[in-house]
Amino acid sequence: MLLAHPQTASRPWRWSLSLERALPKLVLAPSLLLALVCIYGYMAWTGYISFTSSSFLPNYEFTGAGQYLRLLENDRWLVACKNLALFGVLFIGISLLLGVFIAILLDQQIRAEGALRTIYLYPMAISFIVTGTAWKWILNPSLGLEKLAHDLGWSSFTFDWLTNPDKAIYTLIIAAVWQSSGFVMAMFLAGLRGIDASIIKAAQLDGASKPRIYLRIVLPCLRPVFFSAIMVLSHIAIKSFDLVTALTAGGPGYSTDLPALFMYAHAFTRGQIGLGAASAMMMLAGVLAILVPYLYSELRGKRHA
């Protein structure tokens, strides 16, 4: 009796405790379920489809790596990959350089810094569709820059990159850099603000020039910011679809095709779901190739700290 008494008294308390413990799990369960099915489930499904002979409609007849072999022989896919490499490297490189440069200039305690910061950051608030459309007009030889130069009397001026199959890919880079370098600037500006001002003073007293202070001391301290910026930018590069659609639609011909556009075209408009699925899996592999080493280094870093 003496033993039973405290047990009964503590039962309601235990109930509420276990409910309290279970509540976070209960609340998170629906979204976890959705993520499991809609992201990882369909990822797996796409993976399976890529090994089938699906064309207009998905079928489940397993054909091995056939779609991948077709993909690698597909000229358009190779162009898309080459474009992605060129676009990715130049877009990330130029955005970083420009973003860091603007951030350093803005960090010199200038007047109206807040207004300038907003101006540079603003393109980020616009969707890639709008950016693409606006730049299509600006770069269009009969509407934009070229026409302006002609109207001003410089009749020999030509700027036809948008319609030139060899140069069209660079218009994508221009538009994407315009949109993203402000974001890079904001990231680096935040990083620069985190650096103790007396470090810079100390370096000045040590006799270092401004460029040298930034190159030898400040920028090396911002290595984590470089990592994050490259992560974000490479994501934008790999998945970029809307910008291409709005600006060049992959054209002229398929000279500005990117993997995401290729995937969409084959899976949904050309009735080659299997091939589209295979290209989607290749893109996933590309993203993972960047993401996994990054996550690995991040998590390892945390364990050390």
Binding site: D196, K201, P220, C221
Partner: peptide
Amino acid sequence: AMVFQSYALYPN
């Protein structure tokens, strides 16, 4: 030469 309150060592 100057010694700072926050030491201002170059962290990298």
